[in-house]
Nucleic acid binder design. Structure first.
Length: 491
RNA sequence: GGCGCGGUACCCAAGCGGCUAAGGGAGAGGUCUGCAAAACCUUUAUUCGUCGGUUCGAGUCCGACCCGCGCCUCCA
C-alpha cells in the first residue's frame, strides 16, 4: 500500500489512482529565464524518485512537465538583450534538458510550453468569463476569488488573514480585489502580444498550468507536484481556475517538496550562495553525487546544501559503488548461499516498505546499506560464491536502474581528467568506451607491479600518486591490482 | 498578525506510544597490506531543545517556553 502526504488534506493518505494501474502526474517545470539552480533540481529529483517508484510498483505514469517560456522574467530578459522571447529562452530550455539527463532524471512524456498553448488558455478564460468567475478591467482579465468559496483550501489560507500586498502590483494593473489574479494581461509596450478571441494580450502565469494539465491529463488527474513555495499562490490559483471552469475536482493528490537552503540560508544571488548545477559540477563533483545528495533527504524536509554534505553524499554513494565493484572479484565457485538470498529479500522488502511510506528514502537506504554490510561480512569470511556475488550485483543494479539512478557501477573510470572540470554533462561517465585510456592505465599499472616485484616501492608509490592525480585510484588485493575513478580532492 | 515546518550522537538522518534509539559520514583501536586503499571486526546517544502533564509505559501524545526556518501574490 503506497501512501503519500497530501497537502490538500494535510495528512498521509493511501494512494489510490483514478484508474487502476495508471497515474497521471503533472509537475511544475522551469521558468526558462536562467539556468535552473540546485533548489529547482532538488524538486525535479524528488519528482523523479516519485515517478520511478510508481513505475517500479508496476504503475504506468503519464507525466507532464510544463515549460514556462513567457512571464515577466523571460520578457524582461529578452527585452534587455534585445532579442526575441524564443531566442532568449531556447538556450535555457536546452540547458534544462541537458542537465536533466546529467542528473539521471527520466524525461516526462510531454513538456508543453506556455507559448504553444495560448489557445487552450484562452478557452479556459472564456469559460471563466462565461461562468462569471472572471472579469475584464482595462484590457486585462482577472479571476474573482470571492466567487470561488473554496479558495484557500490548499494553502489553508483565509482571505481575511492575508496581508494586503503592501508593495502593490508591479504591473500596475487595476483589480477589483487585491487578491484577484491576472488570467490575461493587457498589451504593454515591449511585451509580446497575442491576438485572440478574448482580445490582445498575454497570459498570466497560473493559467498555463490549468490549460496544459487538462489538455494532456484530463480535467481531473492524480498527482500534482511542485515546491512548497508554489502552494500559494500558484497552486491555489490553479485549483480555482480549473475547478471553476470545469466544475470537477482538479487534482487528487498534491505533493510538495520542501526548500533547499545553502549553509542554512535561502539561496540568493546577493548572498553569494546561489548555485546552478553547473556551478557545483565545476567543483569536480560527479552529477550522480549531487543526485544522491538531493535524493537522500526526505522530500518534505528542508535540505541544507553544503559542500560538506556533498562530501558525505559522495562517501555514501562510494560505499554502494565500492560494494558493486568488490562483487566482481568474488572467485569462489559453488551454489548460492541461502543466507545471501535471504539478505537480498530482506533488503528488497525494506526498500519497498520505505518508499511506500511517503517516499521514506532514509528507510530504504538503510535497508540497502544493511544488505551491503551483511553481504560484505559473508564475502570477507568466504561464505559467498560467485553466484551470490552475481545475485547481489544484479539486485543493486536493479535497484539503481529503477529507483536510485546514482549509477554506482560507473567504474572503471574512463574519463579524461581534463573533462572533470567541464561545465556540462560531458562529465557523465562513459563506461564502456575509451579503450585507449584503459590501455594507458594498464601500462602504468604493469610498470608499478614490476617496480613492486623489484621492491622499488619508491617508484611504485610515485606511479600510484601520479595516477591518483589524474583521478585513478589503485587498490592492491589478493587477486591483483584494481583501479577506479575518484573525484578530485576537495578544493 | 495568520498559516506551517524543524530542533535525535562530532556531522547528516530514520524512528512518531512498548523488545537493548535504524542507517550513512567522520573519529579511535584491531585484522589484511611493502606502505596505502578497500573490506571486515570492535568502538562513539542511560538519551532524543527546555520545563511540566497524560499513561503501566513517551523522542513518540498534551501544554507552556526557548531556539532556527519557510510562506502570506517573483520563487522548486
Amino acid at each position: 500500500m503506497i501512501r503519500f502526504y497530501n497537502t490538500l488534506s494535510g495528512k498521509v493518505e493511501p494512494f489510490v489512482p483514478l484508474e487502476p494501474g495508471i497515474v497521471k502526474l503533472y509537475t511544475c517545470g522551469p521558468t526558462v529565464y536562467d539556468f535552473s539552480h540546485i533548489g529547482n533540481w532538488r524538486a525535479y529529483v524528488f519528482e523523479d524518485l516519485l515517478k520511478r517508484f510508481l513505475l517500479f510498483s508496476g504503475i504506468k505514469v503519464s507525466h507532464v512537465m510544463n515549460i514556462t517560456d513567457v512571464d515577466d522574467k523571460t520578457i524582461n530578459g529578452a527585452h534587455a538583450k534585445g532579442i526575441s522571447l524564443e531566442e532568449y529562452t531556447r538556450p535555457f530550455i536546452e540547458a534544462f534538458e541537458k542537465d536533466r539527463d546529467t542528473l539521471g532524471i527520466l524525461p516526462a512524456d510531454h513538456y508543453p510550453r506556455a507559448t504553444g498553448h495560448i489557445r487552450e488558455m484562452v478557452d479556459i478564460i472564456k469559460l471563466l468569463l462565461e461562468k462569471g468567475f472572471a472579469y475584464r478591467k482595462d484590457g486585462s482579465i482577472y479571476f474573482a476569488i470571492d466567487k470561488f468559496p473554496a479558495y484557500g483550501r490548499l494553502a489553508k489560507i483565509h482571505l481575511e488573514d492575508l496581508r494586503p500586498g503592501s508593495r502593490g502590483d508591479a504591473d500596475e494593473y487595476e483589480k477589483e480585489n487585491v487578491h484577484d489574479f491576472a488570467l490575461w494581461k493587457a498589451p504593454k509596450e515591449g511585451e509580446p502580444v497575442w491576438e485572440t478571441e478574448i482580445g490582445p494580450g498575454r497570459p498570466g502565469w497560473h493559467v498555463e498550468c490549468s490549460a496544459m494539465s487538462s489538455k494532456y491529463l484530463g480535467r481531473t488527474f492524480d498527482i500534482h507536484c511542485g515546491g512548497v513555495d508554489n502552494i500559494f499562490p500558484h497552486h491555489e490559483n490553479e485549483i480555482a481556475q480549473s475547478e471553476a471552469a470545469n466544475g470537477v475536482k482538479f487534482v487528487n493528490y498534491w505533493l510538495h517538496c520542501h526548500h533547499l537552503v545553502v549553509d542554512g540560508e535561502k539561496m540568493a544571488k546577493s548572498k553569494g550562495n546561489f548555485y546552478t548545477l553547473r556551478d557545483v559540477l565545476d567543483r569536480g563533483y560527479d552529477p550522480r553525487e549531487v543526485r544522491f545528495l538531493l535524493l537522500s533527504t526526505h522530500y518534505r524536509k528542508m535540505l541544507n546544501f553544503t559542500f560538506d554534505a556533498l562530501e558525505q553524499a559522495r562517501a555514501g554513494r562510494n560505499r554502494i559503488r565500492d560494494f558493486s565493484f568488490d562483487l566482481r572479484d568474488v572467485k569462489r565457485d559453488g551454489p548460492a548461499n541461502p543466507e545471501v538470498t535471504q539478505l537480498i529479500e530482506t533488503a528488497r522488502a525494506g526498500l519497498i516498505a520505505g518508499l511506500e511510506d511517503d517516499l521514506n528514502i532514509s528507510e530504504s537506504l538503510a535497508a540497502l546499506f544493511g544488505l551491503i554490510k551483511s553481504a560484505n561480512r559473508l564475502l570477507a569470511q568466504g561464505s559467498a560464491s560467485r553466484a551470490d556475488a552475481g545475485n547481489l550485483a544484479d539486485f543493486v543494479a536493479m535497484i539503481d536502474e529503477n529507483i536510485l539512478g546514482i549509477n554506482p557501477t560507473d567504474v572503471p573510470l574512463r574519463v579524461d581528467p581534463a573533462k572533470m572540470r567541464s561545465t556540462v554533462s560531458d562529465v557523465a561517465i562513459k563506461v564502456e568506451s575509451s579503450g585507449d585510456l584503459d590501455l594507458e592505465i594498464q601500462k602504468r599499472i604493469d610498470a608499478r607491479q614490476k617496480a613492486r616485484a623489484e621492491k622499488n616501492f619508491k617508484m611504485a608509490d610515485e606511479i600510484r600518486k601520479e595516477l591518483l592525480d589524474s583521478g585513478i585510484l589503485l587498490e592492491d588485493t589478493k587477486d591483483g591490482v584494481r583501479w577506479k575513478k575518484v573525484g578530485p580532492a576537495r578544493t
